[in-house]
Design a protein around this nucleic acid. Structure first.
Length: 266
DNA sequence: AATGGGACCTGCGCGC
DNA sequence: TGCGCGCAGGTCCCAT
C-alpha cells in the first residue's frame, strides 16, 4: 500500500532513471485506469512529450511534461511503476527514449492516471491537508485540539494531513505510545509533541529504507523496500509486542484494520 | 462535523 | 484438488 514514504521512494527512483526521457509510444492495455481524458486522447497527447520533472504531493505522483501539461499517477493499493519493464501484465506501457519501457502495473485496477493542464486544480489535490514535513509542531497541536474524532482515522484522513495511510498510522501511534481510539483533542501536550516527533521520524526512516514492501509495493527497479523489518505492530496481530511481549491486538476502525499494543499504548 | 457503510477491483489464504 | 468466501485498504460518495 503505497503511502508517503513509498511514493517518495518511487519519485526518487524515477528521477534517477527516466527524468528527461521522451515518451515515444503509449500502450493502454486496460483503459479502466485512465481517468481523463479519453484513453485514445490520453495516449496521443502523451506521445512525443519529454518528462521535465517528477513531483510528489501526498500519495500522488506528478510528471511535468515538456508542453506544460501534467501526467498524474495515483497507485492506490496495488499500483506499481517498474523500469525497465515490459511485463505482459502491465496496464499501461510507456515506451521511452533509450529503448526501454516504463510499466504501470495494477492488479486491482484502483490506480488512476490522468493527463491534465493543471494538477493543482484537481479536486482531490484541492482537498488535501498539509504535508507532514511542512507542519510545525505548534500547527499540528493546534489542528489536533480542534478535533474530537479518533486519532488513528484522523491521521489517515487526507484532508487533515496528507500522505499517511493505514500502515504508518499504526506504526506512528505505537512509537508515540498512544492508543488508536483516543480522541485527538484528549491528547496531552506531551502526547501531541511525541506524535509529531514520531510521525516525522517514522516517515523519514521509512523513506531512507525505501518504503515497506507488504502486498504489491516494489521500487521502480522491482526490488522491495526495506522498512518492513522495522515494523513494530503492522501485520503482527497475535505476535508478542517487541517491548512488553503481550500479544499485538487487531481491531477494526473505520472499516480498516488497526494493529496496536494495548499495554504499551494508552 | 462526524460516522458508518458501500462501491470500485483482484489475488490470496482459509476452511471444507 | 478445487470451490466459495472473507479480507486487504486508498479514495469517493451517500446516508444519517
Amino acid at each position: 500500500m503505497p503511502e508517503l514514504p513509498e511514493v517518495e521512494t518511487i519519485k526518487g527512483d524515477l528521477q534517477e532513471t527516466i527524468l528527461g526521457k521522451k515518451i515515444l509510444k503509449v500502450y493502454v492495455n486496460d483503459p479502466r485506469v485512465i481517468r481523463e481524458p479519453a484513453p485514445l486522447v490520453f495516449k496521443k497527447s502523451l506521445e512525443g512529450q519529454a518528462i521535465k520533472n517528477i513531483l510528489r504531493r501526498a500519495k500522488l505522483l506528478v510528471f511535468e511534461l515538456s508542453n506544460g501539461s501534467f501526467l498524474t499517477i495515483h497507485l492506490k493499493m496495488t499500483g506499481q511503476l517498474v523500469y525497465p519493464g515490459g511485463s505482459k501484465k502491465s496496464r499501461v506501457a510507456f515506451y521511452l527514449s533509450g529503448g526501454k519501457i516504463l510499466d504501470f502495473n495494477d492488479d486491482r485496477l484502483f490506480g488512476e492516471l490522468r493527463l491534465v493542464r493543471d494538477w493543482k486544480k484537481l479536486k482531490f489535490v484541492q482537498g488535501l491537508g498539509p504535508e507532514p514535513f511542512d507542519l510545525t509542531c505548534a500547527d499540528f497541536k493546534d489542528m489536533l485540539s480542534k478535533r474530537k474524532t479518533e486519532i488513528k482515522p484522523l491521521l489517515m484522513d487526507q484532508k487533515f494531513i496528507s500522505g499517511i495511510g493505514n500502515l504508518y498510522a499504526a506504526e506512528i501511534l505505537f512509537r508515540a505510545k498512544i492508543h488508536p481510539k483516543r480522541s485527538a483533542q484528549s491528547l496531552t501536550a506531551e502526547e501531541k509533541e511525541a506524535l509529531y516527533k514520531e510521525m516525522k521520524k517514522v516517515l523519514n526512516s521509512a523513506i531512507k529504507h525505501g518504503g515497506s514492501s507488504v502486498d504489491d509495493y516494489v521500487r521502480v527497479s522491482g526490488k522491495p523496500g526495506d522498512y518492513v523489518r522495522y515494523h513494530q505492530v503492522y501485520g503482527r496481530g497475535g505476535k508478542p509486542c517487541f517491548l512488553c511481549k503481550n500479544p499485538v491486538k487487531k481491531i477494526t476502525q473505520g472499516g480498516r484494520g488497526t494493529y496496536f499494543c494495548a499495554n504499551c499504548q494508552n
